[in-house]
């Protein structure tokens, strides 16, 4: 058996679904199915454990179906990146495609919380007020923000009532503060005015600027 054949056989074994037999792969490799199964478990467990960390609230809501969801995710989106976290990036889209609309919105919010926490930007002051470079805006049709703001992960379960779809979508803002904590909220009119002005290269009015500075959406100039 060449290295290429060996690699293909091993890859097929470790990517086989959890409840399928590894006898044929093991026979080809001359190894026991049990020991080959150790690697299948390792490969799956590394991804599932990081998914649970990335999406604690979504995991809680979908607990009974979580194994099926993660199996589907791994089958549809094999990890292609060194950053293990990125294996979880397609989850919101997969949930939406499976009809879990609220959970998809919640997963999108949880993904943005992670992405913002590790955003490479350094929050430094300059001569003038500047828009927080970690800031992300996105539109959601489900009140995932309100659920996450009012529940800790431990209080969520499959029985948690899902809020109704919003008649008018809301804009969500996620950003990292200078103390490295990540904040999320529905965009309010004053914040929207400040962001819009600074993004256009203009100075916001005093009310909007003061509000955005207090929240951390805008980085204050150096004293």
């Amino acid at each position: 058996m060449t290295l290429a054949t060996y690699t293909a056989t091993l890859l097929a074994a470790v990517r086989a679904a959890p409840d399928t037999s590894l006898d044929a792969h093991a026979k080809a490799l001359g190894a026991s199915p049990q020991r080959l199964g150790i690697y299948r478990s390792f490969v799956r467990d590394h991804v599932t454990s990081v998914l649970a960390k990335l999406y604690p609230a979504t995991h809680a809501l979908l607990a009974p179906q979580w194994d099926v969801v993660t199996t589907d995710l791994l089958a549809a989106h094999p990890p292609r990146f060194r950053d293990l976290n990125l294996a979880g990036e397609p989850l919101p889209r997969l949930l939406d495609a499976r009809g879990h609309a609220f959970e998809a919105a919640l997963a999108q919010l949880e993904w943005e919380l992670f992405a913002t926490a590790v955003h490479p930007a350094v929050l430094t002051s300059s001569d003038a007020p500047t828009l927080n470079p970690t800031l992300t805006l996105f539109e959601q049709h489900h009140p995932a923000v309100q659920l996450l703001a009012t529940h800790d992960d431990a209080s969520l379960s499959a029985d948690t009532p899902r809020p109704a779809r919003l008649e008018v979508p809301q804009v969500v803002v996620v950003f990292r503060k200078q103390d490295h904590t990540v904040s999320f909220r529905v965009l309010d009119p004053l914040s929207a005015r400040a962001i819009e002005a600074l993004a256009a290269g203009a100075m916001p009015d005093d009310d909007a600027l003061g509000h955005a500075l207090a929240l951390g959406l805008v980085i204050a100039p150096a004293p």
Partner: peptide, 14 residues
């Protein structure tokens, strides 16, 4: 990694 898939584990070589 193999065939473009990251396995996030250390698989043995022959």
């Amino acid at each position: 990694a193999a065939h473009g898939i990251e396995l996030h584990d250390l698989l043995p070589l022959p």
